[in-house]
Design a protein around this nucleic acid. Structure first.
Lengths: 230, 230
DNA sequence: CTGTGTGAATGGTTTCACAGCC
DNA sequence: GGCTGTGAAACCATTCACACAG
């Protein structure tokens, strides 16, 4: 329970399986910690960190407690140190080489998206099956035929893949990624894939988020929400 | 409790606030129902619908029970009818006119993304503050200065906005959208915004999803996961 | 028989409240 | 004084199990 001697602040390391929603919030904490770093803040309390995210202080502490002891009673958390700890937990304390599969609309946007490399995810190769885009260059990246994935995966040390292919091509692309030995997929196809085991998949369905928004708006208009009183 | 006379299947309509995770699954049900429609299936049981999504049959039934009575004992759910009911619940049984704010990398991709219009969300106007892109055309869409948003919002009956602006411009853009009287925002800026009330916001942070993926991969490598036995 | 709708039971997440530390 | 870490309580979500309908 005690902190030990020095202020390393890195307690036990992660012990268990992740409570899922917690990991999503870890990313949010990270965002805010980085904003605070720029603002020059040295420490932050669970109370202030939670307020920025509209969650309770206890939630923040419980979340972090899943992965070790990072705080200092009476002080709070040291911003730079907590940032490093969370990055270590998430596995983003290093760079990742990423393959882009599917160079259509979405794929091209992701190639130019600075948000990925800012967080250490570098798209270093692009693949497609359409003869029209194979060989084209986008910035420093040339589009390769999907068949070259296994070879380039070894040469470039690719670990993750971003899948921006149409729903119809999803299963094939996933199989290719799995066969090339990559470890994880970020999937943009609007379809829940059958995951080939020993591959981690996170899916983002842009249409689904708009549907969520439509629901919220529709609900709000139907049920006038009893706020604004007090 | 009884069904009444005819097979309309639309029980009460939504009664309460939405259990949140349920709405996300509604979108998934919708996807699968549409695939089944194409495949020519007439009915589906909660069991089969759940299996496709790797959730239990009871979960499917409970989710749907939030919004009415849609099933037929001994039969299951009529695919076309359930699809219509879910779309009605989500508010996607009609078209929505959407404004795109921010025509950078991500914004341009979204302009060309067919997944939105397939679900009834039509980007009918684009806005930006940078003189470089104002006046440019992308397909049928011309980029307007953000100051024109209020006028065009009325003329084009805009209801939702997709925000693809850098994090620094987020608060300003949100204020502009709120002032123009739109009802909801789909936010792609990697920042949790302070929501201006009477505006619904759904955020998608692409970097965050890659971080989730990195965590899963890292965890799997550290804890070898005791499966594959039995 | 098949399969829904739903109360009861289970499991997980969030909040509360407080002991301990600075 | 302020603040973390954590058991206990409250809350919410999922699963189970069964009465009822076709």
């Amino acid at each position: 329970m005690s902190r030990g001697t020095n202020g390393s602040g890195h307690g036990s390391g992660c012990d268990n399986g992740a409570p899922k929603a917690v990991v999503a919030r870890l990313s949010l904490y990270l965002r805010h910690l980085e904003a605070m770093l720029k603002a020059g803040d040295e420490t932050v309390s669970s109370n202030r960190l939670g307020a920025a995210l509209e969650i309770t202080d206890a939630q923040v502490r419980k979340d972090l407690a899943n992965f070790g002891q990072f705080g200092y009673p009476g002080i709070g958390y040291r911003v730079a140190e907590l940032r490093a700890s969370i990055r270590s937990v998430l596995g983003t304390n290093r760079d990742w080489n990423v393959a882009l599969i599917g160079v259509g609309n979405i794929g091209r946007a992701l190639l130019g998206y600075s948000g990925f490399s800012e967080r250490g995810f570098h798209i270093v190769a692009a693949f497609d099956n359409s003869p029209e885009v194979i060989g084209q260059r986008f910035g420093a990246i040339e589009v390769h035929p999907l068949a070259d994935l296994p070879k380039l995966a070894r040469e470039l040390d690719l670990e993750l893949a971003v899948l921006a292919v149409p729903a119809a091509g999803l299963e094939d692309a996933m199989a290719a990624v799995a066969a090339a030995g990559l470890a994880g997929i970020l999937n943009f196809a609007p379809m829940q894939p059958r995951v080939p085991s020993d591959l981690s998949v996170v899916s983002v369905d842009l249409g689904q988020h708009l549907e969520q928004l439509a629901f919220q708006v529709t609900k709000r208009r139907t049920v006038p929400t009893l706020e604004a009183s007090a």
